[in-house]
Each structure stands twice: as C-alpha cells, then as structure tokens.
Design a protein around this nucleic acid. Structure first.
Lengths: 198, 198
DNA sequence: ATACTTTTAGTACATTTGTTCTAAATTCTA
DNA sequence: TAGAATTTAGAACAAATGTACTAAAAGTAT
C-alpha cells in the first residue's frame, strides 16, 4: 500500500499537529519532515489551513461512519451509548490537535467553525433522542429539567477532556481514554435505573 | 487614578488577548494600540510571554482573594459552593483568553503549566473538602465512588465552559456566565438532599 | 544645578513565514 | 515513442516578528 503524496502530507501533518500544536507547524516543517520541497507541498495544499480543513473532514467522516455503524446495532441504548462514546473518544484522540487548539482553529478557519456549529446541533439532537429512548425503555429516570444540562455537560466534556488530559494526566494513551471515558459515563450514572446495571 | 505604563500595557494586552487570542497579538500591536513605541513596551515587558505570565498571576491572585473571602463566611456550604463558583466564573471570564488558549499557553510557557498543575491539585482538595463537609452536614448524599468523577467533571467544566461558549453561545456576557454556571451547578443536583433546596 | 537613573522613541538586523514563479523531472496517454 | 499533463525542487520576494541597540527625553536625588 503506497500512499500518494497528498496522503503522505496529511498523515505527517496529523502527527506533527498532534505533537506540537497546529501553530508551530508550518508548510516548511511538514515538507522538511517528509523530505520534499515546500514548493511541492504548496502545490498540493496551498497552506496549513487547507491541510487542517482536510484533516477535520477526515475526522467528521470517521465519526459519521461510526454513528451509522452503531445505530444499526440491535443492542440496548445503554450499550450503544457506552460504546459509541468510547469509540468516539478514540477517534477524537487520533485527531486531538483539533480539540487542543479548538478555539484558535475555529477563529482562524470560519468554514470549520460554521460546520462545527451545525455538527453540534446534530449531536445534541442525537443525545436527546438516545435519552428519550432510554427513558421510554426504563433504563434511565431523569427529570425533564435535568435533560438539557446533562446534554450540555456531556457535549462539553466530549470536546475538552483531551485538553485537560494533555496538561494533567500522567499515563499512556489507552489509560487516558479509558479514564476520561469512565468519567464521562459517570455523568449519566446518577440517573440510571437499577435494571440498567450491566 | 492614573495608570503606570506597565499597568496600561497589561490592561490593553488583556483586552486584545481576549478579543483576538494570545497569538495574533504581538508587542507591536499592543504598543501601537497604546500609542507608544514597541521599544518602550519591550523595556517593560521583554515579550508577550512575560505579559501573559503577569496576567496569569493577576488571575491567580484574584481567585485566591475570592477563596479567602468566601471561606470566611458562615453560610452553609451549599451557598458557598454556589457563590464561590459563580464569582469564579466571572473572574475567569475577565481573563478568558487564558482558558481559550489553554493548551497553547501551557505548552509555550512551562512556568504557567507547572503552576497550573499545582493549582489544580489545590482546587481538587478544596472540592473534596467541601463535598465531604456537605456530606456530613446532610446537604448531599453521594456514593463514595461517585465523588472523584464528580470533581473531575466540575474542574473540567470550570476550565472549558468559556471555550465552548466562545463558539456556540449566542448572548451577552451576563447571560453566558449565568447559563454556564447553571449548567455547572446542575452537576451537583442529582446528589442534593431534599433539605438542600433553597 | 548637576549628576544619575529611568523611561521613551526610533532604528536596524536576522529569522521565519506565506506566497509566487520558473524550470526541470516524472508520469500519463494516445 | 512523442507530446501533454502533472508533479517536483528550488529560488525569490514581501511582510511580520523578536530582539537588541542607540540616543534623546523625563524624572529624581543630592
């Protein structure tokens, strides 16, 4: 399996962005790491913003694919919620620079900001739907007024656990994901019914 | 009340950082906005990192002062928790660029990263203490195993609500703070006892 | 008033970066 | 294989930035 120059650039850029942050990394750095000229790199991607947009699109595609895959399953919503969030955490971690430099990237690349706002809308509806479904199946018992805050908490946590982990967590990648996912899932625990323990 | 050049620089830098992010703002920009030469500015602060460190110190001082003030009160811990967090949210918002550029700043200025890790340790202990105290006073009933996740959730929320708000919240500053503080406080609600409603 | 210190403006320089351009090399296609 | 399209390397340029330096101006103390 041989990668095209385009794909090699994206793969290397992802590594460098994750390691060093999306600033500090320039087209020249990426080209240098790949052993190609920056003129060549700019032929494929005019600047780093374009590369970031491409990587963001990769992330969105992967998350969409995951969602499609999971909603096809016949497991109960509790397991869906657990596994969907866990695997989302794994995917997000692959593209962690996007979350680590969240505000900066949104400020610099309006297209991503617009798209992200729309994405959040969708995610919020998905959550609402899952919770309503769990409610009607008796897995969860949550007062109406607590639903919106819970979803807000969950979405915020999902976006920023990586940033917190980057500064404060000592441990390898797998431990990190497992720890923060556990803490994420604990958001829902107060509302779980007894028959929801598994 | 006339400000020294040093203080004028810090005040203007805070405004610009909050508006535009800590990169994009250079010593030349700040100097230009103030109508002074950048040579002069560099006489007071060698570079933007030093300015950021000074502003971070201001934030820490304000938060410490608030904590000291609040722990002196004789209200019950529920009110303490509510008010302390609300006023912390207000102060954090004043210095929001620090939270918006969280990871970037920590990566660039190791002194702040070290200090912040220590600060988090202290905040975690404060939370633990408050919760234990509320527990023994019968305001809250929380299983032992849920305490650590709750604290982690609260600290994470406290650090990153500003970033989420920056992208997604439409509304003025007061509404923003009120909305996110309410969502923050909702983290604790599932565990509050009946006698804790107020 | 004089000498000393602090503050200020302005200049200069090296480095980095984005961007554009040219021409060579390579690959593709007919 | 010949010609066209694509890909690549490298040079060149302008703009921005951090940093250091000089000298003038303002303030202070004796």
């Amino acid at each position: 399996m041989v990668l095209s120059t385009k794909d090699k650039i994206l793969a290397k850029a992802l590594i460098l962005f994750n390691e060093q942050g999306s600033d500090f990394v320039t087209v020249r750095h990426i080209a240098s790491e790949l052993g190609i000229s920056h003129g060549n790199l700019c032929y494929h991607f005019a600047n780093t913003d374009v590369i970031i947009e491409a990587l963001y699109q990769q992330l969105v595609d992967k998350l969409n694919e995951l969602t499609k895959e999971m909603t096809g399953l016949s497991e109960n919503q509790l397991i869906i919620l657990y596994q969907l969030s866990y695997r989302s955490f794994e995917i997000l971690y692959q593209y962690r620079f996007l979350m680590l430099d969240f505000v900066r990237i949104m400020r610099r690349i309006p297209a991503i900001k617009l798209h992200f706002k729309a994405l959040m809308q969708i995610r919020q509806e998905q959550f609402t739907h899952i919770i309503a479904s769990m409610q009607s199946n008796g897995f969860i018992d949550i007062p109406e007024k607590n639903i919106a805050p819970l979803i807000e908490q969950a979405l915020l946590f999902g976006d920023f656990w990586i940033s917190r982990a980057e500064i404060l967590f000592d441990g390898n990648e797998q431990e990190k994901i497992a720890y923060y996912h556990k803490t994420f899932y604990a958001l829902f625990e107060p509302y779980l019914c007894d028959n929801a323990e598994w």
